[in-house]
């Protein structure tokens, strides 16, 4: 696969390591009163859709950016990629 790196253009997926569902960016507040319950969901419950999926890729052999890649897990079509930092700051995650 080719990952369309937002800064470097298409890069071979072998340069990346894969983490999974981008919802891992939505880490609950560990000091909140309901933290135990929310962390249970955060750590253990994730969607694994056959279809469009927002997921985290790390450009380990490249610029060390974490990317949020939107990919169709059935066809491997990639619909977009952005720096996780930007996705996080933009509140899109």
């Amino acid at each position: 696969m080719l990952i369309p790196h937002p800064l470097l253009g298409p890069r071979d997926s072998s340069e990346f390591s894969y983490l999974g569902d981008a919802s891992l960016m939505d880490r609950p507040d560990g000091m909140a009163p309901d933290a135990a319950e929310r962390f249970h969901d955060y750590v253990h419950l994730r969607d694994n859709p056959a279809g469009i999926h927002r997921e985290l890729w790390f450009h380990e052999q490249g610029d060390r950016s974490w990317l949020v890649v939107t990919r169709n897990t059935v066809t491997h079509e990639i619909l977009g990629a952005e720096l996780a930092r930007d996705a996080r700051k933009g509140g899109a995650a």
């Binding site: 340069e15 052999q61 490249g62 610029d63």
Partner: peptide, 10 residues
């Protein structure tokens, strides 16, 4: 200049 994979390294 770029960083990329090379023999299981970068």
């Amino acid at each position: 200049a770029t960083r990329t994979g090379f023999h299981h390294m970068s």
